[in-house]
């Protein structure tokens, strides 16, 4: 028996909007720790890892570890039917091939349930070790989204370089080139507006912009985004989900031949 009641149902709606274009089908894993997902995009260069901790749910019952295969497009369609203020409850019986989404309005005057078929998904799980990164950049998520969108109108790839001067996002295309430098800026009114750069050593990596633009669909989940970069590792683009967990995107760098 699985029963997860999330008072801030809009979080789950935002999560689905963030991942549905990157991954078609995925297994949601439910355990005592929480509700999680790990899935790769079809080309196996990007990976999304989601964790919503059990403590973040108002009610969390998961009698045994369960993996539920879902089509994320269909799940997003169902969750779009929930109001932004609705409480969302996920329910599944042991051995069942369906999951039920229950939506309750805050005043309890409207209750809806939607039943979705589960799927068998043969997904490849990757072990992601804890790593020391050469540089970690925290910046406003809206600023990062703006940079990715602006650069993708000029080129297809972005070079992210972190030096003691700041973090530079560069692209080049048929019409020309673009460079955007963000300097560390911690003297802002609100901490979420700060750009903070922790650098152990300079790093410069090249990525496909279309993946970054896909990752920025998670912007509504968090005011800030963290980029963790190392020359030998995929970048980690992390959006913290307040008091619940995180959504992390991993993207393998492009390698010069």
């Amino acid at each position: 028996m699985l029963e997860l009641r999330l008072v801030q149902g809009s979080l789950l709606k935002k999560v689905l909007e963030a991942v549905k274009d990157l991954v078609n089908d995925a297994n949601f894993d439910c355990s005592a720790t929480g509700f999680s997902l790990q899935a790769m995009d079809s080309s196996h260069v990007a990976l999304v890892a989601l964790l919503l901790r059990s403590e973040g749910f108002e009610h969390y019952r998961c009698d045994r570890n369960i993996s539920m295969g879902m089509n994320l497009g269909n799940m997003a369609k169902m969750l779009k039917c929930a109001g932004n203020d609705d409480i969302i409850t996920l329910k599944a019986d042991d051995g069942s091939d369906v999951v039920t989404f229950m939506f309750e309005s805050p005043t309890q005057d409207k209750i809806a349930d939607f039943e979705m078929k589960l799927m068998d998904i043969d997904s490849e799980h990757l072990g992601i070790p804890e790593a020391e990164y050469h540089a970690i950049v925290r910046m406003p998520s809206s600023e990062f989204a703006r940079i990715c969108k602006d650069l993708s109108s000029i080129g297809d790839t972005v070079v992210i370089s972190v030096t003691k001067e700041g973090v530079k996002f560069s692209t080049r295309g048929d019409i020309g080139t673009a460079n955007i430098v963000c300097r560390q800026n911690t003297t802002v009114d609100k901490p979420e507006e700060a750009t903070v750069i922790e650098m152990n050593e300079p790093v410069s990596l090249t990525f496909a912009l279309r993946y970054f633009n896909s990752f920025t669909k998670a912007t509504p989940l968090s005011n800030t985004v963290t980029l963790s970069l190392s020359s030998e590792l995929p970048v980690v683009v992390e959006y913290k989900i307040a008091e619940m967990g995180y959504i992390r995107f991993y993207l393998a760098p492009k390698i010069e031949d």
Binding site: V45, L126, I255
Partner: peptide
Amino acid sequence: DIFQNALVAYFDSK
């Protein structure tokens, strides 16, 4: 020319 590496080049399959 630049190539895109797959994630399995970095992370082990469980």
